[in-house]
Each structure stands twice: as structure tokens, then as C-alpha cells.
Nucleic acid binder design. Sequence first.
DNA 1: CCGTTGCGGAGCGCTGCGCTCCGTTATAGG
DNA 2: CCTATAACGGAGCGCAGCGCTCCGCAACGG
Lengths: 208, 208
Amino acid sequence: MSRRGRQAEAARNDLLLLEAAREVFTTQGFDAPVSAIARRAGVGMGSLYRRYRTKEELLQRLCLLAMERVVEVLEEALAAPDPWEGLAGYVRSCVGFRSGALGPVAGTIAVTDEMWRTSRTATGLAERLVARARDAGALRDDVTALDVSLLIEQFSRPAPGPDSDEQRHVRQRLLAIALDGLRAPGATPLPGPAPSATWYEGRWGTPP
Amino acid sequence: MSRRGRQAEAARNDLLLLEAAREVFTTQGFDAPVSAIARRAGVGMGSLYRRYRTKEELLQRLCLLAMERVVEVLEEALAAPDPWEGLAGYVRSCVGFRSGALGPVAGTIAVTDEMWRTSRTATGLAERLVARARDAGALRDDVTALDVSLLIEQFSRPAPGPDSDEQRHVRQRLLAIALDGLRAPGATPLPGPAPSATWYEGRWGTPP
DNA sequence: CCGTTGCGGAGCGCTGCGCTCCGTTATAGG
DNA sequence: CCTATAACGGAGCGCAGCGCTCCGCAACGG
């Protein structure tokens, strides 16, 4: 797998780069300077641009990786014995690595076919996860899978300044509140119609 | 009050400007170009810079106004007969005009004495409002006034792209979920310690 | 009729970005 | 041990887009 010497360093750098890119883009937004990513990864600009010919290419790779990670988390969540714990764990994980922050890169970058496919897989799994929780009576019945995705997105939204421990902790507290609000009974009905899937997908451009 | 001719136009422009600034800054962030505000207000750059000598001055004025508006809303909320409805209305209003989005301008601009005073007034009122709801048993007892402020801030956080009707509607749905989570009984306890007031204030710089 | 007042917006200077290029350094082969 | 090579870090180029200024012009007042 891993070779020696300079080539090993190259392989390591690639991982460092992707992780740094995730941290920087999800906490500072997509217009964060590429140099910030290189610095965070402890890597020169040269090494970065040898692997990704452009900033957009890096972003595409990153989005795809994030989507695949979401799919993984969804599969684990569906494997969980308790429907509610599965759903809650999924939401917490996604907010944890801020998958939602990469969602609305919409319009900024071109969407590859592979990204579309992975996105659809994720949507399908999320729908099953939500349906399972609702059928088990663990979830209020006026909330849709899309609502859950948008909740993740709202809680992934970056705050100004560095992402301190304090901020992460606050986010966990607030998320705990929101998750309690997702649980079932006696809740006040949600206002207006459920968000439409076409609007949600439309932000990414038109499907192929 | 309002004079005639050119002077009336000047007065009108001032209101247009402040409203446009609020919309642009809260939806696009503080590094939005000043020209965007002028365009949104339907006003030339000259008129803007005649009233506010610098972008920072405009931001300061805007923050102060937002804080005063929050104080107004808090007073109305405290006057509401039902403690829970008062609190919920306050949160909905603040998220409605996105007062929280101006909060973390921290460090970007200098904080005037008047801003500090208004901020303290708001904090005091918010604490009373939250205490009243908790004493009435309408609010889970592990949530603090600071948690509520941070919840408003999280939901005020701007999404990329223009602030469409669809987005506003989604935000209302998600907020309804979170508000249900704030209500009392049988909720899972919030993780970790409550956020500290000194950390919260510290983001604005050191008090005078 | 002209003086005055406030108007819009073109453009200046500059910051800070994406990206390139090159001198330097670590490794592999003879 | 020495040289050829591969990958490295980061200074700097060209440019986009910002804050802000300045000026020609339109609308009023006397």
C-alpha cells in the first residue's frame, strides 16, 4: 500500500490536504483562500496544485468524499437496533463533521455524475432511516427526511471566527434541544407545507 | 418632522439605507460590498458616504439599531400574558429579522459605550423572560438565557445565495421544531455545562 | 435666472486572491 | 560518495473586487 520515502510523504500529504480542506471550507466558507488550506495542512502551495489542478477540482473531490462519508454514516444508522438512536446518531455525526456546510456550495462548482449518484443514494437511505423512526413512533409524523437534512444543514452553518471547543460544545447543546423537538407526541404542528424535493435538488443545478 | 424637497429625500434615503444594510449584511455577511447596500437601497455611493463616513460607522449604527429593536421585542414579550408565548414570540421575532446574524460581528468593529449599555439591557430583559417561562414550568429547566440567545444566533446564520421565500419558510419549520425542544418535560438532559457569560461577552472585546 | 444643495456613479489605489515557477532538499542508483 | 531526479515550499505575478473619493448634473429656493 504505502511506499517509502518521498512517495510516502506524497500519500500522507494528500490525506492531510483533504482533511485540512474540509476543516477550512466548512468553518470559513468556500471563498476561503487556498493558501489557508495549504498552511493548515503544513504543505506548500506547489504540493497542493500538483494534486489538484484547480480550486474547483479540490472542492469537487471534497464534496464527493463528504457525500460518501454521509452514506457510510447512514448505513451504520440503519444497522442500529433502535430506530430513534439510529436517526439521532446520524444527525449528530453529520453535524459533527459539518456535512451540511458543503451542501450549499450550489452553483459554485460543477456537479459530476458520480456526485449525483452518491447524492441520490444518500437521499434514499435517509428516507428509509426517517421512515423507520416514524413507523416506530419515535419521530413526530409531520417531519420529512428533507426537514432532517435541512436541520443538519442549519446546524452545520459556519460561525465567524475560529471553530473553538466552546462553539462546538454550544452546538451540541442546541442540537440536543432540536433533537428533542423532533421526538413525537403532542408537538405543535409544523407551519406550512413540507419543503419540496425539486427545490432542494434545484440548488445544485439541473440533474443529468 | 419631515421637511420638503431634497431634505425629505435625504431623510427617506437614510431609512432605505439602514434597512438595505440590514438585509444585505444579515444575509451576505459583513464583508458584503458597500456598493451592494447602495444598490439595494436605490441610492448612490455619494449619498451613502455623506451620511456614514465609513463602512464601520454604518455597521455600528446598524448594530445599535438592531439591539434596540431586540430590547423592544423583549419588552413586548415580557408584557405578554402567557410566559411561554412571550418567549416563543421573542425567539421567532429575532430570527425573523435575524438579529443574531449581527451578533458575531465581534472583533470586526469597535464597540461603543452605547452599544455596551443596550447590550446589557437586552441581556437583563432576556434573563427575566427566560426565568419567567421556567418558573411557569413552560421551559425545560436546564436551558439558560444564554442558550436561547445562541439558538437565535444559530438560526440567524446566513445561508449562501439569496434569501428566498422558500428558505425563510424552511427556517420557520426548523425553528418550530427547536422551540418544541425547548418546552419542558421528560427531555433528555443537555450535554455538558451551560455556556459561560464571560465567553459570550468576550467575543465583543473587553467591556469598558 | 442663477446659486445652492444634494444626488448618482465612474474610477483610483490597494488589498488579497488563484495560480505559476523556481531554487532547494531529500531520495535512488551507480 | 556523487549525480540525476523527483517532490517540496513559498515568493511573486496578474487580476478581480473592494472601500472610498470626487465631480458633473439635476432639482429646488429666492
